[in-house]
Amino acid sequence: MLLGQTIINGLMIGGVYALIAVGLTIIFGVMKIVNFAQGEFLMVGMYVTWLLYKAIGGSPYLLIPPVIVIMFIFGLLLYKIVVKPVVGKGDTAYILLTVGLSIFLQNVVQLIWGANYFSIETTIKTEAIQMGDVSIQLPRLIAFIGAIILVGGLHLFLKKTDIGKAMRATAENSQVASLLGINPSRSFAIAFAIGVVMAGMAGVLLTPMFYVYPRVGQLFGLTAFVVVVLGGLGNITGALFGGLIIGLVEAFTASYVALDLAPVGTFVVFLLVLLLKPEGIFGGGVRKT
């Protein structure tokens, strides 16, 4: 039972990590930004979900369409006002900008709604599917499936649509892309907004599992980086598998080594991958720059 349950535990939390990592990946892939504020975008997504839930009610999962719209606008505005002025000013500028943004968002939210913990009423949060001795928690299963759908959808979007192709071209080489008549700034804006939307969707899917509060994004920030690097920076499907692998590593360390050493397990695997295969297990990401 322990083995089976450990695998399920790992896969389910891995789905959650993948969900958060996907947004980070698309922003990095196209813009080459390491976004330290992704956790806060997730937090904003959760607040939007919670506010809409209070206003409308119903199942939180039905709130996905309005959350997408709101987060897309939020992402575009954020890009226009904050990120655009820094484009091309180097990696460190991005890092500090997003660090500043994360501090700012966290505290503005606290300023408005206080440091209290909010949650939404839904019976789904304690439901589970029993398979023999092994149980699968329903909200986690939904998040897991959500992650797969998101990754699949995003993949198709990048492969099939014109905007997606333009974004891939920008990711490949923004100078060449602009010679081909592609506006890199537009690709950046859309990539950034999509990254924010992904965080918003993750927000919807996580709200049944976690409290909504200003620091909730901090729970996932570092793990998301690990997942993204593991999958190959900029590789969307890599992020999915990266998430699952980290989930499994964490679950196995927790079950078979020591519960409070789970983060050590994660980061040791991370370092090993960085050293042995810096382009990520699934490659395809940006190689040595």
């Binding site: 994360s102 501090i103 505290n107 503005v108 939210v109």
Partner: peptide
């Protein structure tokens, strides 16, 4: 209200 000072810092 908590948060104002840190928000300005950010």
């Amino acid at each position: 209200r908590g948060g104002a000072s840190t928000a300005i810092y950010g």
